[in-house]
Design a binder for these strands. Sequence first.
DNA 1: TCGCTATATCGTTATTTTACGATAAAACGC
DNA 2: GCGTTTTATCGTAAAATAACGATATAGCGA
Lengths: 106, 106
Amino acid sequence: MDTTPDLKTYDLDADELRLMQMMKALGHPARLQIFRYLRDNPQCITGDLVEVLPLAQATVSQHLKVLRDAGLVCGTIEGPATCYCLSADNVAWFAARVGDWFRHAG
Amino acid sequence: MDTTPDLKTYDLDADELRLMQMMKALGHPARLQIFRYLRDNPQCITGDLVEVLPLAQATVSQHLKVLRDAGLVCGTIEGPATCYCLSADNVAWFAARVGDWFRHAG
DNA sequence: TCGCTATATCGTTATTTTACGATAAAACGC
DNA sequence: GCGTTTTATCGTAAAATAACGATATAGCGA
């Protein structure tokens, strides 16, 4: 007899989950602002972002973690501060994948 | 004297807000699955999606509303059912905008 | 008209997210 | 070592989201 459970298998694969996580990360105004700031001001530190955004330092740090976990941003310790920049490869992957996924969809 | 309030003006413009809303809408597994299904199966009805997804009918309908509000999907009444398909123009806009926004960012 | 089908919306609960102040952790100058 | 600076993390409260069953709406056929 068949022991395989009757699961619905209309699932997302690993790449699609990654894509989804990135879109979820960017689907918040503060995080899109952070992303834009890093795009326009490479190599800035957390304090620069705190100054620009209407949010507490803890909140900005939390949003940075979401962007880091999504792989869109990386921070390197620079003395007492942390220097952030976009993760070029992953951002390029994101842009390319969105192109593949959506461009010929309409 | 200066009566303008000292607002932080590092805001998102209308296009960026629209982009954000679209990414937010797609940043959920069920909605990305719905989008993919509509991409691969144009002109399907709500019931088809309910059959494929492990969610109740009400929940699928709610997700469809989010996608509609984001402008990614449109539904037209087709007899007793509703026929859904991707909003070609807006999806193309999304793909193009992501390209602009992210491609030369890394 | 009376069901029957398909779907949207309502009302509610559980979960997740967001935001903050307070507190740790780490690097540097003195 | 001792402050100072900068940032991450913790703990928590408020708000938003996700999911469901139940109900309303609308079209079509008998």
